[in-house]
Nucleic acid binder design. Sequence first.
DNA 1: ATAGGGTTAG
Length: 574
Amino acid sequence: MNYTRLGLLHNPIASASHFNQRLLLSLKHTRGFTKLDDALQLFDEMLQRQPPPNIIEFNKLITGIVKIKQYSTTLSLYKQIKLMGIPTDLYAMNISINCHCRLDQVAYGFALLATIFKQGHPPDLATYSTLINGLVLADRVFEAVELFKKLLRDKLCEPNHIMYGTVINGLCKAGHTIKAFELLRYMESGSCKPDVVQYNTVIDSLCKDRMVDNALQLFTKMTEKGVLANVITYNSLIQGLCNFGRETEAAKMLRDMEEEGVSPGVDTFNILVNSCCKQGSVKDAQLAVETMIRRGLHPDVITYNALIDGYCLRGEVDEAGKVLNGMLETNLVPDIVTYNSLINGYCKKKQIDKARHLFQEIQHKGLTPNVITCSTMIQGMFQSRNPAAARELFNKMQAKGLAPDICTYRILFHGMCKNSQCSDALVLFRSLVSKELTEDVDLYTILIDSCSKCGKPNVAMDLFDELCLKGLKPNVRTYTVMISVYCQGGLFGKANDLLRKMEDNGCLPDSVMYNVIVQELLKKSKCQEAEDFLEEMINRGFMPDSTTFTMVLHLIPNVGKESRMRTIVQKLTA
DNA sequence: ATAGGGTTAG
C-alpha cells in the first residue's frame, strides 16, 4: 500500500516503535475547547457592557454554544442573563427547552412551557416541535404523537414541515416506519407538502428496515414530485445498498448523484470506505480515500477510524499504525473508537500485553474506556488464557458504572466455556434477569455449543428445548450446533428431523452448517450420507472448507475408482 | 434575522 502517495504518511519507514511513540504523544492532546472558551469570554464581556446588549445578541452567541452541544453551559448562561435582569424572549425559552430535552430532562422542558403560558405569551411552533422532539429523544414516541394529535385536534397550531418531520422521525426511530410513511402520504395530500427532509427520514428508515427497494421507489416518487434529492438522500441510499451487499448499485448511485449535480461529501466517501473495510477489502477502501483526496475532500476521524479498524480486524495492526500516523499528521485527534480498534488489533494478534498497555495509557490520558473497550479487553484476556483477569475486568467495569451489554455477555460466556468454566457460566446465566439477556438466541447458542464441547450433551439439549419453549427462534448457528450435538451422539434421525424442521421455519442451511454436517458424518464413517450432503452443498453453491476437504481427500484412497466421492473431488479440483 | 426536524461510526 502506498501511503506516501496518499499523503497519509509522514515517515515512509514508520516502524512499530515509532508508531507507539506517536500514539502516546497523541494522547497528550486534549479536546479543542478554544471555541467554547472564546464564546464564554465574549459572553462575559457582553454581560458587563453598559447598557447590556439585546437578548437577540445573546441568543446569537448562545446558538453557537448549543451547536457544539454544550447544553448545561447554555442553561447556566441563561441563568446569568436572568440574574442580570435582562429580559428574555421566546427564542431564549425555546433554546432552553431544547437544552433540557437534550440533557434528558423533558420534564423541565414542559415546566418551561408552563412558564411561557404564565407569562401570558403563547408558545409557538418551535416550542411544540422542540418538546415533541424531546419526547422522541426520551423514547416516549407514543406521548410525542399524542401531543402532536392534541395540537391538531385543539387547533393549537397549524403544523409546518418541521413539526411533521419531527413526528415522522419519532415514528421511524420507534420502528414504526410504515406509520411514518402514512404520515408522509398525509402530508402529500394536504397543504403542507413534504420537503426533502421528511422524504429522507422515511427513505433512511426503510433502508434500515431492510426495505431498500421500497426506499428506492420512494426516492423515485419524490423526484417525480419535483423534490430534489440532496447529499443526505444519496447517503442513506448508498448506505442501505452497501449494508445489503449491493455495492455495485451503490457505486452506480454515486455516479447518478454526480450527474444530478449533487457532490458526494466526506460522509458519502466514509460510507464507501467503511463498506469496503467491512467486506475485508482495505485496499479498495484506500482507493476510495485516494479518490476523496483527489477531489479536495479531507478525510476525517471517521475515515481514518474505518481504515484503522479494517486493518485491525485482519490483525494487521502495524498497517493500522501507519494509518494512525497519517491521521496524526493531519492533526486529527484519535478518539475512543480509534483506540478500541487498535486494542482489538493487538488482541487479535495475541499481543495482550500491548493491548493492556494501550488500555492503561488511554485512561491515564483522560479518555474513558466504554463498554466496547472493556468487552474487547475481556475477549483478549480470555483468548490469552487468562480467565481470571477477564473476570476481574468484567467486575471492575460494573464497579465503574459501565453496564455490560449483550456483546459483553456473549464474550464472557464464550470465554468462560472455552476456559472450562462451563458450569460457572451456566450459574451466571441463571442469575441474569434482563429479558434482553435471558432471551438472546446467540447467548443460548454459545451455551449449547459449550456444553456439548464440555461433554454435557444432555444439558445442551435441555437448553435447546428451553429456548424453543420460550418461543425464541433458533438461527442457523443454533441449528448447526444442535445438529452437531445429535450427530456426535449418533442420533442421526434426530439430526435429520431438525434439519427438516429448520427449513420449515424458513431458515436455510449455510456453508458452515453443511461443512459441520459433512465433517460429523465422515467422523462417524457415514460416507454415503456425507456424499449426499456434499453434493447438495455444492449444488447450492457452497464450498467445502479446508477441514472438510482434507477429510474427504483422506477417504479417496479407500473408495473405489468410480465412486461419487472421487467425482466430487475431481469436480472441485478441476 | 435569534430557536425546532433528516444521513454517516465500533
